[in-house]
C-alpha cells in the first residue's frame, strides 16, 4: 500500500519572511501571530510577547521599516515582507550605537521592554537623525517600561543621536 503523502491542514500555508536579511520559509496557520512565528518557528526569541493586546510594545518589530506590534499582526499577512528584529541590530559582536548607548545610560534594567524600545528608537533615528526630547517621547509612547522611569531611555536615544549627552556608565 502506498503511503498517503503528508499534507498541511487545509488552512495552513507556506510563507516566506525576510528576517534581518535572511529568508525563512515557514508553514503557518492563519491564527499564528508574527511574534509566535518569530519566537517559536524561526527561533528568534529576542522579540518579547507581553500583553498581546497592543498596550505594552514589547513585541515591536520593524515591518518594511515601520515599527509594528508583532502580537497583533497575522504572520500569513506578512508573506514576502522584510522584517527587522532586535537580533538584527548588532553587527556580529559589535553592538549598534543605540544599543551601546542603552548600556552606557543604564537604560536597561529587567530588559523585557528593551527589544521593543530599541526598535521603536531605531525607526525614529532612521527617519529623524537628531530628534528632540519631545519627538523621542512621542516615538516611544507605545512602549511601556516598568523599571527605568524612562529618563535613562530618552538619554540613551539622545546619546545615540550624538546630541551632547555623555555616557553615564563608563
Amino acid at each position: 500500500m502506498t503511503e498517503t503523502p503528508k499534507r498541511p491542514k487545509s488552512n495552513s500555508r507556506l510563507i516566506a519572511l525576510c528576517v534581518n536579511g535572511e529568508w525563512h520559509e515557514v508553514t503557518v496557520k492563519p491564527r499564528h501571530m508574527l511574534v509566535e512565528v518569530l519566537r517559536e518557528m524561526i527561533g528568534l526569541t529576542g522579540t518579547k510577547d507581553g500583553c498581546e493586546q497592543g498596550t505594552c510594545g514589547a513585541c515591536t518589530v520593524l515591518l518594511d521599516e515601520r515599527p509594528v506590534l508583532s502580537c497583533m499582526t497575522l504572520a500569513a499577512d506578512c508573506d514576502g515582507r522584510q522584517l527587522r528584529t532586535v537580533e538584527g541590530l548588532a553587527e556580529g559582536e559589535k553592538l549598534s550605537v543605540l544599543q551601546q548607548a542603552f548600556l552606557d545610560q543604564g537604560a536597561v534594567q529587567c530588559g523585557f521592554c528593551t527589544p521593543g524600545m530599541l526598535l521603536s528608537a531605531t525607526a525614529l533615528l532612521e527617519r529623524t537623525p537628531k530628534p528632540t526630547t519631545d519627538e523621542i517621547k512621542k516615538a516611544l509612547e507605545g512602549n511601556l517600561c516598568r523599571c527605568t522611569g524612562y529618563n535613562a531611555i530618552v538619554a540613551a536615544v539622545l546619546q545615540a543621536s550624538d546630541q551632547g549627552v555623555t555616557p553615564l556608565m563608563k
Binding site: T60, R66, P67, L69, M72
Partner: peptide
C-alpha cells in the same frame, strides 16, 4: 490615537 506602533498599523 494610541501609540506610534498602533498608528503605523
Amino acid at each position: 490615537v494610541a501609540g506610534n506602533q498602533i498608528r503605523q498599523m
